[in-house]
Write a protein that binds this DNA or RNA. Structure first.
Lengths: 197, 197
DNA sequence: GTCTATATTTGGATAGAC
DNA sequence: GTCTATCCAAATATAGAC
């Protein structure tokens, strides 16, 4: 007979393996590109053979979806949720901006999976897309709302300029940080423009 | 005996075929992704078999390089060279910004090839990279220099925010133009900040 | 749950006839 | 310059033994 304890243990073990695979996938993706690694390579890295991976992910796109989801979970942990908080000072906003810059540039492949469309045919599942929206809401929308900014155009302006600094760093000089000071300046520019903080 | 005329004719014919292949490659790339089309598909589209393509491009990466080069030539034709011109008015700058936005968003795959790094292992040749730099110089550096802006940080700020608007449009809602009005606003923001025009 | 073996497809690229 | 035929490598995914 199967005890509940055994089921739990089995589930936990399964989830742990899943996690290990996802992390190995990130490592491989950083080296070979997000679409450039194979399931054979991935299996080898976790000490399995390729077919065993199908116990954890039904298709390669399902793996991508788990990575996408994982990326947004990481971002969520890295930034400070702004929901129900007092408005940030200008310096605190810059601090969050630098954290975002560092998060994105430290792993360009992760940034691409999360914010660009690097894999033809892959789209995040509804669940993962919902998490992405949730993170955006908790961090950006809330932060701006706390400053009194709620109209979509201004929110987009903020998203555009901050992501612009990040994506230029990654496109023109990945691995470096020479665009990092520009994040502060871009945020100054924005805040001067909207006349708050 | 081969006449010079014949050589010219042959060369022109060769270049015409090359051009036809590049254009077919763009069409395919728009549908299948930049790395998602095969040389077999490409050959079929121009009425050839795959091996014949090797008369025109030694490898697939050479084809990508030709496309990269072609993209920057197209951009060069689309924008107005600013070298030796009088400073633009604010409205004229916005006009150029909108042209850039339209150019980039009308073909996201082209934008990706030109400005992101969508193909692991592909880097533009020295010649193509030089063209890219030349275009950037003739358009952006010159335009800003005519306004008295010459320091690198401010130039980068301009590049960051304008590319940011474009890349958000492509990432979040490709095919649409709902971020287009933000290009004007971003340029206002920038010009207010640097206090010119 | 993991394996071996393999099906199946597809890719880039080359040899050599015409 | 274009073709047919083919090489070779690699990919995702499945079947079925253990």
């Amino acid at each position: 007979m199967l005890e509940t304890q055994d089921l739990d243990r089995r589930t936990r073990r399964h989830l742990r393996s899943r996690r290990e695979i996802i992390e190995a996938a990130w490592e491989l993706a950083r080296g070979e590109g997000i679409a450039g690694f194979s399931l054979r390579q991935l299996a080898a890295r976790v000490g399995m053979k390729a077919p065993s991976l199908y116990q954890y992910f039904a298709t390669k796109n399902d793996l991508y979806d788990a990575m996408f989801h994982d990326g947004y979970q990481q971002l969520q942990e890295r930034l400070t949720s702004q929901e129900g908080l007092a408005p940030l000072t200008r310096e605190e906003i810059k601090e969050e901006g630098r954290k975002f810059f560092d998060f994105c540039t430290e792993d360009p492949v992760r940034y691409a999976l999360m914010c660009e469309r690097p894999i033809p045919g892959f789209e995040p599942s509804a669940q993962s897309a919902a998490l992405a929206e949730e993170v955006l809401h908790a961090q950006v929308y809330s932060m701006l709302a706390n400053l009194g900014i709620r109209d979509q155009e201004t929110i987009r302006l903020f998203l555009g300029i901050t992501n612009g600094i990040v994506s230029q760093q990654i496109a023109l000089n990945p691995g470096a940080q020479d665009w990092r000071p520009l994040m502060d300046r871009a945020i100054d520019l924005f805040l001067d423009h909207v006349e708050v903080a």
